[in-house]
Amino acid sequence: MSTAISTEWVSICPVEDLLANTGLCALHEGEQVAIYKINPCEEYSQNFLYAISNYDPIGKANVLSRGILGNIGNHLVVASPLYKQHFDLFSGECLEDPEHRVKTYEVRCFNDEIQLKKSAQ
C-alpha cells in the first residue's frame, strides 16, 4: 500500500534497530508504546511487527516492551517481565485476567523504518 499518506504515520526508528523476537519502547504522542518484532509464521500471522501499550496494568510499571514473546495456544503473546501474565498482541487482552486490556497501536514497516500510526485528530 505505497499510496499511504506519509503524514498519517510517524517514523520511530530503523527496523534493524529492533532485533527479531524482542521488543523496544517508543514515545508516541506522549504515550509509551511497546513495539515487537517476531518471526513471521503462517500459523499465527503474516505480520511481524506488533504494538501495544508499554504499561503493565498488573505490575503497574512501564515494562511490557521487555517481555518474552511467544504463543499460548492460538494467541500471539508477550509475557510481562514482572509477573509473567500474558498479553495478546492483537487485542491487548490479558489472558490470565481478561478485565485487564492494554491499548493496541497500528504499526508498520515502511522504507525500512518502523512507523506508528497517528491517532485520529
Binding site: 509464521c41 517481555g67 511467544g70 500471539l76 509475557a79
Partner: peptide, 9 residues
C-alpha cells in the same frame, strides 16, 4: 509454535 517464557529461557 513460537515458544514462550517457559521454554525460551
Amino acid at each position: 509454535g513460537l515458544g514462550c517464557e517457559i521454554c525460551k529461557p
